[in-house]
Amino acid sequence: MMHRLQIPLAFLKKDFYNEISYRFHFMIQIFGIFFATLSFYFLSKLVDQNASSYLEPYGGNYLAFVLIGLAFSHYMLVSLSGFSEAIRETQMMGIMEILLISQARLSTIILSSSIYKFLFTSFRIVVYLLMGALIFHVDLSNANYPGALFILLLTIVSLSCIGIISASFIMVFKKGDPIAWGITALSWLIGGVYYPISVLPPWLQKLSWLLPVTPALEGMRMALLRGYSFPQLLPTITALVVFSFIMMPFSLLVFRIAVKKAKIDGSLTQY
């Protein structure tokens, strides 16, 4: 088991040491978590009084609503852009060739390259939720944590598929990532990250359900704020499982083709 995890752990260790070597940046990141939570706490004082009807399905507390949205959006960003950022970084550092000449499989390299970002995001999310619960009294007493965690993992996998396809764009076109950009922008706008989708015009509400973010976020909020059970979460889980099963092999195939194209063009280290 440890043998299988050797390469992901090596990436994790390397990224951790690299990150803490920028001490000031590391500290700023930690403080950023507290400031973001505090900002949304004050915002929630304003919003709670005027948006109770929209927030009622989620328990009526805007801070609880937005903290989950915020936490989720961080995972979304890492899943969608983390791989392409890692690929671009290795291209710019001239390390891509060294990675590809090693014994590590292509899929291992690409998945391992974002593992630190996912773990740091998880740490950030735990702090968000702890601060929300302990300081600002967000009620998570009914939460179905295993259900929420399961949805989160499935969401990471399904969004990572799109992220890997984005990384393929970077491998070939070097800069400009239309897929991650488009999905991230749409998710902010109509995915229900900062506000319930019920505030949107009806036609936009329908459109928002085409994004994987919307059902995933809805399922996560229902699990954490309303304590939905696994059978109640089944539609969300099924959709995400089907999406991941289809998209994961497809995205890895696309990435493999992108690497082959870069090898034919001789552009592996170009950026």
């Binding site: 390397k14 070597s21 550092m93 001239g94």
Partner: peptide, 15 residues
């Protein structure tokens, strides 16, 4: 195979 390149970029400078 081993590959030795002269590209100084190919290391993590902070490590």
């Amino acid at each position: 195979i081993g590959y030795v390149i002269c590209d100084e970029r190919s290391f993590y400078w902070r490590l």
